[in-house]
Nucleic acid binder design. Sequence first.
DNA 1: TCTATATTTGACCAAAAGGTTAAACTAAAT
DNA 2: ATTTAGTTTAACCTTTTGGTCAAATATAGA
Lengths: 207, 207
Amino acid sequence: MIERSKSTDNQMTTEEKIMNAASLVFMKKGMDGARMQEIADEAGINKALLHYYFRNKEKLFEAVFKRAFDKLMPPLLEVFNSDIPILEKIPRFLNLHVTFLRENPNAPQFILFEIQRNPQMIMEFFAPLIHSGVIDQFKEGVQKSIEKGEIRPIDPIHLLVNIISMSVFPMVARNLIMEFAPFSPTEFDQFMEERKTSVSQFIIKSL
Amino acid sequence: MIERSKSTDNQMTTEEKIMNAASLVFMKKGMDGARMQEIADEAGINKALLHYYFRNKEKLFEAVFKRAFDKLMPPLLEVFNSDIPILEKIPRFLNLHVTFLRENPNAPQFILFEIQRNPQMIMEFFAPLIHSGVIDQFKEGVQKSIEKGEIRPIDPIHLLVNIISMSVFPMVARNLIMEFAPFSPTEFDQFMEERKTSVSQFIIKSL
DNA sequence: TCTATATTTGACCAAAAGGTTAAACTAAAT
DNA sequence: ATTTAGTTTAACCTTTTGGTCAAATATAGA
């Protein structure tokens, strides 16, 4: 009998196996669409074990969400919090972010959908980030660059939204783009790689 | 007793009431999260009536999806299919699209999520669009503009993805942006209105 | 080896949710 | 007024699904 390709590697602890399987299933199907049985199958264990390690679906989901969130945010902050000038921040951000997205293709869609499903969760996870002053720092950085004449006058929020949009959205619309372009998975991957420089140029040119 | 705010207007036919209620609930909760009972309540009718008009949840969902899709696509195509030069297409597209998005705030997220949930549906809905040659037409238009020296050399697909990203993504990340900016619903609305010109300028400047 | 603790399982359970049905109600046609 | 076709409902059924439990198995310490 042929082995199914599961998230089962014998060296992993059961808890890790569960987390990986849950991550896979939740990211693909969302909280509502995910089935505990499917997660158990994917982890190669019994369903009751899920409840042994994580009390219930909600708790398991939160653990998965938190892990995805904690993997996403640090590199993002690292760039925005640094003191390098805005024109250098942009290519650096795109590099880090596109790399992350390639390794976690379903993360953005997952986070965005769950935010809409349960907006209260935004508070819990994003509140500390919001109050850390990253945004204000970014705004100030842009303002200074404008005063120095390095870039044209532009609303910092619009600029920020533009940057995030162009790096995140293509991953969210991945399947759609692949159909329209049309791209094979490999070609799409290359497309995203190109965007590191392509989008950097695009933004810098417009400033 | 105070009347609840339902999708119930006495002049609507039952079928319309159901479609509107289903649209509301499906858009907010997605296929998996939506409950037939909730749709029935929202429409102010009995649950069995849903099955009388639409055989089952799947069929009802398809009807809702189709309606959303048919409302989204025509204006989009109208602009891209027209023969006006690319530099005029951009502001026109943004105008139409942002206006549509404001009236259907949950449509993009809804469509994107469901495409991921059931990729097969892409084919059914988007196939005719893809084979209509819109994309090739857009590519040619950009190429011509490049040759005429109207815009700098740029990969048309990257350009197209940039345009779509900057207009669609802010609506998908609506809740997030409102928290971060921070914006009230009214302010966010104004923000999107600003983007009609802001993004147009941003793109044109970069070309 | 024997005991105690942690892990894992198969069998169940109760609630939720989609779907069905037969009967009641309405409104138009004869 | 009666019939007929379309509409609406309350009650019910079945399947799915998250969750539980007692028993079995492995693991480590005395």
